[in-house]
Design a protein around this nucleic acid. Structure first.
Lengths: 210, 210
DNA sequence: GTATGTGAAACGATTCACAGCT
DNA sequence: AGCTGTGAATCGTTTCACATAC
């Protein structure tokens, strides 16, 4: 039923659509159409319809999309009907900021473990989760059933830690260290590089002679 | 000299190339070729050459690229030969993590101002920068010559704060709030949405039946 | 009448393959 | 001989426009 081969560009937009639909639900809209979704998401209606059509036929011609049912469908496609089990590896400033970010729970992400190499940080309790030693990485990942890891360790450590995560079965990694990870093709990796993003903004300023 | 119309996909990769070159410089490599850059950056050689060719002719046939001079060229294109003046707006956990991130300075970004709406945070000194009131936004931006703003305010406040930033002449905004900003076309905007990124990873897990 | 779903057209990005320079 | 720079070919994405369904 779920057609294979959803284009990557489409996948990147799905979380945006889901956010818009939740917002529409918050505004008590029972039904929404592609023009409205596009407006909220910052794209155009044709794009919205094409994107959704890769996942199935969720709309009703002449009417639009039922907000609740489209939320259900998108959540299913994104695999966030159950909370995903997330570990934060590296409890520095960024790691701790992410650990206490309230936006995760409501979007299907539960932080179930926090790891750090620094013994002085280990044992610190944050919310209901304690910081555990990175030496215990394998045990913690198994015990908690970690599915996604967020890497906020120093750049030098990132590859080694990623290797260990993959070896214990973690299939998805979001990497905040400014290094490219070399991992098996079946592991999903997203790279976050804030300084790099700022440089892209700087490029645009430069173009305008600023 | 700088040819117009560099494809956006190319621009996104330029910070990656610059990072790789700095790494090569650190390894005392005087010269590098497109195969080596590609390997470090996680692309292929043809892509690297095409990308660089949009910016100019920086290489020497039969030899490769002089590392130092390519660093200079890329830094120039990205507009980071001088430090860019950055303001962090919203001194919550994420804002404070970014404020103290050491990776900015070495990549051409200087945090010159930190703003927050909470009076209890105002006046707190961090590094050499004090947190100032968001009421003073216009004055601070002018005084410090802010070029790029990093928005780490609550989602509800993001659009209003962004409007004020643009009105005082900020031309580039990196937005961490999970809302699409509606701004004039000449303002450069990058959206960061960590929860959304994690949902994309979740999609890939779901595909593999995980 | 209205809005979806989708082939076809237009557009943009990546890869190929080689001429041109060192 | 070796590596860049680049047209041409391929591939993927977006947009158009309309048949189809309500």
């Amino acid at each position: 039923m779920t057609s294979q081969a959803v284009p990557p560009t489409t996948v990147d937009r799905l979380p945006v659509y889901l956010r818009c639909l939740l917002q529409a639900k918050g505004m008590r809209m029972p039904v929404i159409n592609s023009v409205q979704i596009a407006e909220m998401a910052g794209t155009n209606a044709a794009q919205v319809r094409k994107d959704l059509s890769y996942l199935g036929e969720f709309g009703t011609r002449g009417i639009g999309y039922d907000v609740d049912s489209l939320i259900t469908q998108l959540s299913r496609c994104l695999g966030v009907t159950e909370q995903r089990r997330v570990a934060i590896v590296g409890y520095g400033r960024l790691g701790s900021a992410l650990q206490s970010y309230p936006g995760f729970e409501e979007r299907g992400m539960r932080v179930v473990a926090v790891l750090d190499a620094d013994p002085s940080k280990v044992g610190t309790a944050v919310n209901d989760t304690a910081v555990e030693s990175i030496d215990e990485l394998e045990a913690v990942v198994s015990r908690e059933g970690v599915e996604i890891a967020v890497l906020t360790v120093p750049a030098e450590a990132a590859q080694a830690v990623a290797n260990r995560l993959v070896a214990v079965g973690v299939g998805a990694i979001m990497n905040f260290a400014p290094v490219r990870l070399d991992l098996p093709a079946d592991v999903a990796v997203r790279q976050a590089d804030v300084a790099g993003e700022l440089q892209v903004l700087s490029f645009h300023l430069e173009l305008q002679g600023r």
